[in-house]
């Protein structure tokens, strides 16, 4: 690619300013934190569902940032409240993050600057947060997808036997150590339309 490094910085800044729900290293210093919550606020009326969703994220984000230090101190004493999740991106790069129990992989990815799309913001109306569970063992620990999730998975690009929607995978203690791959769909995207691989 042209300017891999710079474009990463660009993406980061783009997300910080507009994505809103991402962790913001630049804003973290001093009073910039307040500004961050200000630049977070959308400038338009949100769809009711979306609003709920965003406020959930926002609350959880706060929870995350305030409890981070606490859990550091209490580490090892009480039961683990976060689990370790590794995302493997399209280029094979890995990123390990800590995800609070109860949070969806879609929210977790967005808070940690992981390139996972979420067109319908977790309302089970699209397939863009498609992730592939890399170990069958972990896949089997998950509850079976509902009909509604399967309807969306039908349309996911690069569908596999262990595909799930990131918005439907919720962090649970038994999922500690789960590895999720972002599908590589673009490589074979033909001019005449890509046909998702059936399974």
């Amino acid at each position: 690619m042209l300017f891999p490094r710079l474009s990463r910085i660009g993406i980061k800044i783009f997300r910080e300013l507009y994505g809103g729900k991402f962790t913001v290293p630049l804003c973290r210093t001093g009073s910039a934190l307040e500004h961050y919550s200000g630049c977070w606020r959308p400038q338009f009326e949100l769809h009711p569902e979306a609003k709920t969703f965003q406020s959930v994220i926002f609350q959880k984000h706060h929870q995350l940032s305030t409890t981070a230090a606490v859990s550091d101190a209490a580490d090892g004493k009480k039961e683990k409240e976060t689990i370790s999740v590794t995302f493997v991106d399209k280029d094979g790069d890995e990123k390990q993050i800590e995800v609070p129990v109860g949070m969806s992989m879609l929210e977790a990815a967005h808070q940690n600057d992981i390139e996972l799309e979420g067109a319908c913001e977790g309302s089970l109306a699209c397939s863009t947060c498609h992730v592939i569970v890399m170990d069958m063992e972990y896949y089997n620990k998950l509850e079976d997808p509902t009909d509604e999730e399967n309807d969306m998975l039908d349309l996911a690009f690069g569908l596999t036997e262990t595909s799930r929607l990131g918005c439907q995978v919720i962090a649970q203690p038994e999922l500690d150590g789960i590895r999720l791959a972002l599908p590589v769909a673009t490589r074979n995207f033909a001019v005449d339309g890509y046909v998702p691989k059936p399974h």
Partner: peptide, 10 residues
């Protein structure tokens, strides 16, 4: 299908 339209936020 209001959920499908949520993408307009993005």
């Amino acid at each position: 299908h209001p959920e499908t339209k949520i993408v307009t936020n993005q």
